[in-house]
């Protein structure tokens, strides 16, 4: 019997993989992709809890839609920032981004 905790474990595993990617990668685009993984993990949790705890009201799906909207906005602005920095620095490695350091 597949229950709520199986889906929550799937979400936890995805979140952990994304967290590892954020720490272990240097490429800014790879870090953005890891953040997307974490957001997807949260969405899985929202939908699973909606399905198993309160199936009548689809509030969890509503929240997941808002998460998707914010993630789309985030990824478009983030990639524009990365391209803009690449023009100046010729690099997408986070180690080379020290424009705001003094």
């Amino acid at each position: 019997m597949i229950g709520l905790n199986h889906y929550l474990l799937l979400g936890t595993a995805l979140f952990g993989i994304g967290l590892y990617g954020v720490f272990a990668k240097r490429n800014a685009i790879a870090i953005l992709m890891s953040v997307e993984l974490m957001l997807n993990a949260v969405n899985v949790n929202f939908v699973a809890i909606n399905r198993f705890v309160q199936p009548a009201a689809s509030l969890g799906q509503l929240f997941a839609i808002f998460v998707i909207v914010v993630a789309a906005a985030e990824v478009s602005v983030g990639l524009a920032l990365i391209i803009s920095i690449y023009r100046q620095r010729r690099s997408v490695n986070l180690d080379d981004f020290n424009l705001m350091k003094w």
Binding site: T12, F15, G16, L19, Y20, F23, A24, K25, N27, A30
Partner: peptide, 21 residues
Amino acid sequence: NPTTPSRDTHYLGGLLAWLVV
């Protein structure tokens, strides 16, 4: 898509991810 050159950051990230999971 290289991993970070600092081994400390790498292992710390892996450890933190395992702890969270």
